[in-house]
Design a protein around this nucleic acid. Structure first.
Lengths: 192, 192
DNA sequence: CCACAATGTGAGCGTTCACTCATTTATTAA
DNA sequence: TTAATAAATGAGTGAACGCTCACATTGTGG
């Protein structure tokens, strides 16, 4: 018998590889099982559904991105600059024309409708962050933009991810963690 | 018995409505047949597959958009201004950072890979149009941008449409028509 | 060595969906 | 009226897919 946690890791690595290669909808449980050299049933000992597997991999990746951003604050400037530049453009374009931005992102009416609630949540969070951040007078403009882009960017990414891959998981969980990370980036590991 | 062409039109209208409402992948043949009050088999008398039906509706819509652009050249300036403004922003953002643009549009590596060939074709066409347009010295800068955005925009739209709805139709057909229209816009109904 | 739990297996279930085809119904031409 | 053609029908087909479950295998504590 194989060690349980090793098998789970194997499934995670194999499926992530296939998801990136072919997309989630196009990757079947049979594909994953065959590629990992395990039976289909085994996968369900470790993950309760394909949705959950995909979601876990996806949020893990975004958590490591968030951790990366934390490290940016600790002085790794070249990554910070790179990210800041990217995110600045991201933000600037969204500021200039959010409707066009959304339109380009999703390109179809029914997908736009799906995303709108999450987008509004993101905007609300964003406004709170900016308002409180400004009020406290501790936050540089770039940092607000960084945080804002983080929230907006990730939420939009999640929305697109969901639209593309037809995943039905809830956004609230990842949303909360993102707001936490956002605050830490803004206030330097402090709590709101 | 119903008149054949009337039935085809009914199918077209009904399915377009459902496609816009729910998306193509989420709309089944049964949905369309039920909504139109016909049997499933009837649909296949008029369209050889769901792909073909979706594609026909989609390209029809873009053809009418192209015709709209033709009419712009004939003096309907407010629409031209409106389109030009929209397309200018579209172009400017693409110019500034095509990689980020594509990334935002598609948000996932495997979808990017699918689109790349068509994108390259579009860029080639675009370069030809600009080069020849400039050489002939007849084309205002804005018109080049308009045409460029038209080609790029529509091809990208088609690519996103395909990625979202998993349609496997070829792009070459619509591509040629687009280049034709492009030339007519540039040269005022002349041929290259 | 045995009992028991944890893990692995893969044939098969239930469902969905695009598509087919034998049959029925309507239209037209002679 | 009748024969021939065109259109419409919907039960049925086969394939794909996520997921289950009865059973097999392996590890562990007493």
């Amino acid at each position: 018998m194989r060690d349980g946690s090793k098998t789970k890791e194997l499934i995670a690595r194999t499926s992530l590889h296939l998801f990136v290669e072919k997309g989630i909808t196009e990757t079947t449980i049979r594909d994953i099982a065959a590629a990992a050299g395990i039976a289909e049933g085994t996968l369900y000992r470790h993950y309760e559904s394909k949705d959950q597997l995909a979601w876990e991999l996806f949020s893990e990746n975004y958590m490591s991105f968030a951790r990366e951003l934390d490290r940016v604050q600790e002085g790794h400037d070249s990554l910070k600059d790179k990210l800041a530049a990217m995110i600045h453009r991201f933000c600037a374009f969204f500021d200039r024309d959010p409707v066009l931005f959304s339109y380009l992102l999703l390109a179809q009416h029914h997908q736009l409708k799906k995303v709108t609630p999450e987008m509004q949540t993101a905007v609300t969070v964003l406004q709170k962050v900016i308002a409180q951040g400004m009020a406290r007078g501790e936050v540089a403009e770039m940092e607000v933009e960084l945080a804002a882009a983080m929230v907006l960017g990730v939420v939009l990414q999640v929305a697109v991810f969901k639209a593309y891959n037809r995943i039905n998981q809830d956004l609230s969980q990842i949303g909360e963690t993102l707001v936490d990370t956002c605050w830490r980036v803004l206030a330097g590991n402090g709590t709101p």
